[in-house]
């Protein structure tokens, strides 16, 4: 069964049609590469799945059930985690505070609840360890390198055990060594039955870890093929518009 199915998704921002009737689906244990030129609508699409935008039109099915994801908390409750293209970090907060932002560990209830700083710091340290990052929970994000910031955003996706992981250009700003690390992690996610959507401009990465590639052009999905049935030249042509459709 499909873990995620998008049907006829459209999204307009005023006069801009960022997405037009896009269908997309993904199975557990599958990685889908989502490619397209700047402004093609890739981020808009993943943000719709993550509950940041509601679609102007169309339906979303999670594990076969029709779902409306109207905010990020609902998306998380459906087992959807995301690393945003711009990471969405608060520079003034520590790494640990950023990881737990929006889902802090509390003791007590409501007004009388209290943040469990130690529990959160310990868990964050564990997550950074798993990600083989030297980031420390107490460090303020402001003073971090690109790779460390990436690790903070990635650690958020591991707080819960998600079913679907959305990665919006996770390899854009990091070193070769760290790219290899992220690709290895995507493979690991696949092996453990997670569905991964990888938005990327890097053809090599997509061909290395993805099972399928979908191409968006000006808000329309113009291709959706198994990696085995295509090649980088064809995908490049589809992205640039040299090839009309696949």
């Amino acid at each position: 069964m499909k873990i995620l199915e998008l049907k006829n998704i459209s999204k307009s921002f005023g006069a801009i049609h960022a997405l037009e009737n896009v269908d997309l689906d993904i199975n557990p244990g599958e990685a889908l590469g989502l490619m397209g030129d700047n402004g093609a609508g890739k981020s808009t699409l993943v943000k719709i799945v993550a509950g940041n935008f509601s679609p102007t039109n169309g339906e979303i099915f999670v594990a076969g059930k029709k779902t409306s994801i109207s905010n990020p908390l609902e998306a998380r409750n459906h087992g959807i985690e995301i690393v945003y293209q711009d990471l969405k970090l608060c520079n003034n907060l520590t790494a640990s505070a950023n990881v737990f932002l929006g889902r802090e560990i509390n003791s007590g209830f409501g007004f009388f609840s209290r943040l469990k700083h130690t529990a959160m710091n310990d868990r964050a340290a564990e997550l950074f360890g798993e990600l083989q990052s030297e980031t420390r929970p107490h460090d303020v994000v402001e003073r971090m390198s690109g790779g460390q910031r990436q690790a903070v955003a990635l650690a958020r996706t591991r707080l819960s055990d998600p079913k679907i992981v959305l990665l919006d250009e996770p390899t854009a700003a990091i070193s070769i060594r760290q790219v290899a690390g992220i690709l290895a992690r995507i493979k690991q996610l696949k092996e453990t039955g997670h569905a991964v959507i990888l938005v990327s401009h890097r053809m090599m990465d997509v061909f290395e870890v993805c099972d399928r590639v979908a191409v968006l052009r000006r808000g329309n999905k113009i291709a959706d093929k198994p990696i085995a049935n295509t090649n980088p030249e064809e995908v490049t042509g589809l992205i640039t518009g040299a090839l009309e459709k696949a």
Partner: peptide, 24 residues
């Protein structure tokens, strides 16, 4: 310092856009 409310205020002041995206 010790309540979620305060933590969220720092987040909003630091990066409102991020706070919003994370469901605050």
């Amino acid at each position: 310092k010790h309540h979620k409310f305060g933590r969220e205020l720092y987040a909003i002041g630091g990066n409102r856009d991020a706070a919003e995206a994370l469901g605050i």
